[in-house]
Amino acid sequence: MEYIVETKNLTKKFGKETAVEGLNMKIPRGEIYGFLGPNGAGKTTTIRMLLGLMKPTSGSVHVFGKDLKRDKLNILRKVGSLVENPSYYPHLTAYENLEAMRKIVGCEKARIHEVLEIVGLTHAAHKKVKGFSLGMRQRLGIAQALLNRPELLILDEPTNGLDPSGIIEVRNLIRSLPRQYGMTVLISSHLLSEIEQVATTVGIVSKGKLIYQDSIESLRRHSQHHIAFRVSHGERAWRSLMAAGIKTQFQGDLVTLSDQTDDATVATAVRALVQDQIAVYRVEEERRTLEEIFLQMTTKERAV
């Protein structure tokens, strides 16, 4: 498989503290790689090393199959980035900010209007960034990252500070990038729910180590289903289901089915309850959320 980003034993130490340790990250072409981890796990340090802002203590970074140490400028020409909080020059307008960048990356002027259009900032193009709201600044940051039509887009917490409709817009935008422009995207977040909705591959980092890296589907397979019944009489329902040969747990008026959750069993259970004159208010599927899996993985790591 072709990897757009590949790190080998990437390690970064600050004095005695190890921020990133033996990280082997692999991002296949065209994927949206969700880089997950609690705050302070080493996500931003890793991203800074991918962009050549920080030099690794040991290990190597290859982007587009080239060594970052040797081909830094050629690599960066095809990379767009938004690291942590967006950086901008507050005394300049949004347009001027992009123009300052355009002069360096060397795309045509029309591209500035294009990216402003993409992030929905056309109306504020000639206003000073000083007066922008947090969400508008974040949009400008994304516009800056898109300016040079990157092949690899690195977004560190891109939905920070956006309102719900802004989050959805950005999410849709990110989703469309690999399809429309063949971009590969690395998006980091400490919120799994955020990653879950866009990423196709996930890397989970905790305490500087990559503890999980695979497709989002395999991560989902870790999640188990429960079927919860909310009924009029919890204990009676539990007995009645027991009699029908279905093992459940109950707590108050909530009866949970966890071992067999196939359609037939659920149908049998409902029939049994109805026949025994127990009112069924709700039948809900409960997934053990990825959030829980994520928490479990990262706390397990912490306990070691």
Partner: peptide
């Protein structure tokens, strides 16, 4: 201060510049 105000260093130096 132009660069330090919003830490624009990271943005500027992640561009293809020496």
């Amino acid at each position: 201060s132009i660069e330090n105000e919003t830490n624009a260093w990271k943005q500027l130096l992640a561009l293809p510049v020496r």
